[in-house]
Design a protein around this nucleic acid. Structure first.
Lengths: 236, 236
DNA sequence: CGAAAGCTTGACTACCATCAAGGACGGTGG
DNA sequence: CCACCGTCCTTGATGGTAGTCAAGCTTTCG
């Protein structure tokens, strides 16, 4: 909950919105923001509540959740380190934001953050660019959810998670089997892909039996045959 | 194809991005933009092409289409009058944009438009706000596509189209039956909702038989029992 | 060690896609 | 004016994919 005084040492200094600011400008932000750690399962923002905070995600993974009146739940987006969190200019929050893993945030009051945006055109432009990119991602997901089979969804999801896991720290050779931990449970994967937990489990088993992936235990996944997985992601 | 010299008379002067500009600032835009009319079915931008234009939509309806390698098609968004068209800061277009009805646009070269944004912070902020709103809409659609039944999708779609049709020109009484023309064919509705044309047709028939809507012919729809339609949109 | 949460597997079902055929509507040309 | 054609829409029969219900297994954590 302490004020930030270490922006220049920040893990995401070069990737987050703040990368548009000079060191001296950062000191202004310091007085506004504070670090906060939340634990797995904790909710940062509830849908419908007044939208009073914005943040940069420093570490961990968050989910954006839409809930239907009758209790069905759908994850409409995931947030990764360096992603921007919250809705400037919004009266109330559209979605509930909850931590999937322990996470660390750099939080600003929304109104103060909006004033910073007004004074820093570069930062506002960067946010616009990110928002446009997020819109593209969301629309791509619309196409996937509407038209892909369960098999395609799972294969595509695994490829996506794999590329994210290897984004930091490349692997030795492009063709070597690659192992990583999923940050999501089967149930959460189901919520992301618009499937049920049983279907997710069955598709994973199918890929395992086909020798395309291995499931060494826990949340770990090994991709043994990336090419075949890509084919699965595109198969009608 | 003429340069615009009638912004101050523009039908969407108060709703589009330009509403952030003074009359004198508009004259600058005049020199950059030009009006263009496209006919139903014509494509304005192809996915993958270099993203070279931005525009304001003056009249008509456009579709944003994602196509999978194997030919399946999904409409990932619809654009209505006063909506902003195109992707500033994008290298190449993510989606194909095609006219569903005859449409009128006010077109700017992308690079010139970006320079205008840089000089007009109010306009850039307005675009940011719109993009954030569009992101919320897209994410809401993710939830719908993933979790709603065909019945819910159709009912929700009809309510949405109804509210759009009545947005301009309110109706007499809130409870009176309301009739309007759908700007989309059954096939296009299917592409929006991630269904097949047959399922769309069957659901419409079902609603008709239930006395909730009437189909007077052509593209026309009458909502006889809005309350029941809302129930259909929320039923599990 | 025990309980809770998460995962897998099986049997069955329902919903929607697919395939197929025919009807309604609108425009064109004889 | 009517016949013709293309596009769009409706309806029926059938099947497959993924959802639902249920039971048992594994991992995690207090």
């Amino acid at each position: 909950m302490a004020h930030i005084d270490i922006c220049t040492d920040c893990a995401i200094r070069d990737q987050a919105l703040c990368s548009s600011l000079s060191d001296s400008e950062l000191t202004t932000l310091n007085t506004l923001g504070r670090r906060r750690t939340i634990t797995r399962g904790q909710t940062l923002i509830w849908a419908g509540d007044e939208s009073i905070i914005c943040a940069n995600l420093l570490s961990g993974v968050l989910k954006l959740v839409a809930a239907t009146p009758d209790g069905r739940e759908q994850i409409v987006g995931l947030l990764y380190p360096a992603d921007f969190v919250g809705q400037p200019y919004a009266g109330q929050a559209d979605f509930t934001i909850t931590a999937l893993t322990d996470a660390e945030l750099c939080i600003f009051p929304r109104d103060a953050f909006e004033r910073v945006l007004e004074d820093h055109a570069r930062m506002e432009r960067l946010l616009l660019q990110r928002t446009l990119a997020a819109l593209g991602v969301a629309r791509t997901r619309i196409a996937s959810l509407a038209r892909q089979s369960a098999q395609e969804k799972i294969a595509g999801f695994l490829l996506d998670m794999a590329s994210r896991a290897t984004a930091s720290g490349c692997r030795a050779t492009p063709d070597a089997p690659m192992t990583f931990d999923l940050p999501l449970t089967r149930g959460q994967i189901a919520d992301v892909l618009g499937l049920t937990i049983e279907t997710v489990s069955r598709q994973m088993t199918r890929l395992k039996i086909a020798g395309i992936i291995a499931l060494p235990g826990g949340r770990a996944v090994t991709i043994s045959d990336e090419r075949a997985l890509q084919d699965s992601a595109e198969a009608a």
